[in-house]
Design a protein around this nucleic acid. Structure first.
Lengths: 221, 221
DNA sequence: TAGATTGTTAATCGATTAACAATC
DNA sequence: TAGATTGTTAATCGATTAACAATC
């Protein structure tokens, strides 16, 4: 391995391998082949092998990869070993759901606090503080926060992004369904439900159309 | 236009255009050029033009596309005009957040009911019924539901998917962080937070490393 | 008419897949 | 040894970008 530049497509597949590997029972064999992984996840085995080559220092022919070190290598590569502090803006339902999600630990993500234009409470159920949005920029600066999670309505998202950037943030996880304008050194990762829905919707349309055609043929025949 | 087969990459960009177009104020000009759209969304103008060509029946040189009909065309293409009924399984925080999200109307998505292994309530805040999971398959069949939204923990996701498929569902929106094994005619769209987090995490790692190097250089110099 | 903008055709780029040699 | 599996090199595929002709 050792830092060939990784492509985004590969990067996006790594969490899938990781989660599958971690979900395997203790009793499972210590080694796993790319072939087995590929079959389990419904992927091509060559692709899996190439992906793994990017992060691991190799498997053994006929045996495969040591599961334990594969997990370690992927986690290390993804930076799940060192914790990232984050703030979340918008303590609505989605925001609260994210604040309450225990699983983020596993990804090295630690949400320090929530911010809201109209805080309804002082602390979330999990005991994380909820501050007024006016404190956002200074909080980010003083806590050296590098990541912001935006769960406000689309209208306020750009404004929030600007404040985050003013606070020194380098990456934004954007759940608001809108495009954010940011300097080129800031990464915006859009969690866009609309995108997924589009894919689903178009698939269903095709399905419905297909069924209708079959039915019509049946009636005529 | 007229049904050239659309690629997934194009499909995924359409909601972005749509949302931008819809967000424009009433007072804005009736026409918009691909160039303007591209600049607003930080994309290449050729790409935008090609994408629009897939769904619209053309703009006019020097003038651009009629905004109104572009919106109509994209919505039609994405099937947002006819409503899709869906069920949601897993009435936890995320599930409730999705149940309560008003914006799905806009995408033609209508969540009929929620199902849970241990229902905590009879109805959600929004008045949608919450049933025991044992009713899932028969409900899907009798209501001819085509889409299932899975917001249960990873361990139970496959089981839920199987029940959905038994109920005749054709598309699954999967929020559980796990791979689902399904027949090839069923579409699974994974809403995978882990994927996004991986991208963000790797970006931040690179940022941190870069900063450290600059600082070290500064100290030496 | 001149020029902005469209749509198309060709060139480039990147990612996936196939073929094959290396190895335990 | 034989064969499963790895890793690499080459071929294919698809998507993006560039160049350019058409048009209002």
């Amino acid at each position: 391995m050792e830092q060939k530049k990784i492509s985004k497509s590969v990067l996006k597949r790594l969490p899938g391998y990781l989660s599958y590997l971690k979900s395997m029972p203790e009793g499972a064999p210590a080694h796993i082949s790319a072939t087995a992984l590929a079959n389990a996840l419904g992927m091509g085995e060559v692709q899996v092998r190439k992906d793994l080559a990017m992060v691991s220092d190799g498997g053994r022919p006929k045996i495969g990869y040591l599961r334990e070190s594969l997990i370690f290598d992927i986690e290390q590569f993804l930076g799940y070993d060192n914790t990232t502090d984050a703030v979340l803006i918008g303590a609505g339902k989605l925001g609260q759901a994210l604040m309450g999600y225990k699983g983020f630990d596993e990804y090295g993500l630690n949400i320090l606090a929530a911010f809201d234009a109209h805080p309804q409470m002082e602390k979330t159920e999990e005991g994380k503080p909820v501050y007024h949005i006016s404190k956002l920029t200074s909080f980010c600066r003083s806590h050296k926060v590098l990541m912001g999670i935006i769960t406000v309505p689309a209208e306020s998202a750009q404004e929030v992004a600007d404040q985050l950037i003013a606070g020194g943030i380098k990456a934004i996880w954007n759940f608001a369904p809108t495009h954010l304008d940011v300097p080129s050194n800031i990464l915006v990762q859009n969690e866009n439900m609309a995108t997924s829905l589009a894919v689903l919707s178009v698939h269903l349309q095709a399905q419905i159309k297909e069924e209708k055609e079959i039915k019509e043929k049946g009636n005529k025949g």
